[in-house]
Simulated assay, not measured.
Amino acid sequence: MGVWSDDVERRAEDFEVVPYPTTPGCAATYYPETNVLVPLDSVAEISNQPTSKGIVARLEARNG
Rank of each mutant, 00 (worst) to 15 (best):
M1H: 13
V3L: 13
W4N: 08
W4M: 04
V8S: 05
E9L: 14
R11F: 03
R11M: 07
E13P: 00
E16L: 14
V17C: 05
V17Q: 06
V17H: 06
P19N: 04
P19S: 06
Y20P: 00
Y20A: 09
P21R: 07
T22Y: 06
T23D: 09
P24L: 03
G25S: 03
C26R: 15
A27H: 01
A27Q: 01
A27F: 13
T29K: 04
Y31N: 06
Y31R: 10
P32R: 03
P32L: 02
E33M: 05
T34S: 04
T34G: 00
T34R: 00
N35K: 11
N35D: 15
L37N: 02
L37I: 02
P39Y: 05
P39Q: 02
L40I: 12
D41P: 01
V43R: 15
A44K: 14
A44C: 13
A44W: 12
E45Q: 12
E45P: 08
I46V: 14
S47K: 07
N48S: 14
T51G: 10
T51P: 00
S52T: 13
G54V: 05
I55W: 03
V56I: 14
R58G: 02
L59E: 03
L59I: 14
A61Q: 14
N63T: 15
N63S: 15
N63M: 13
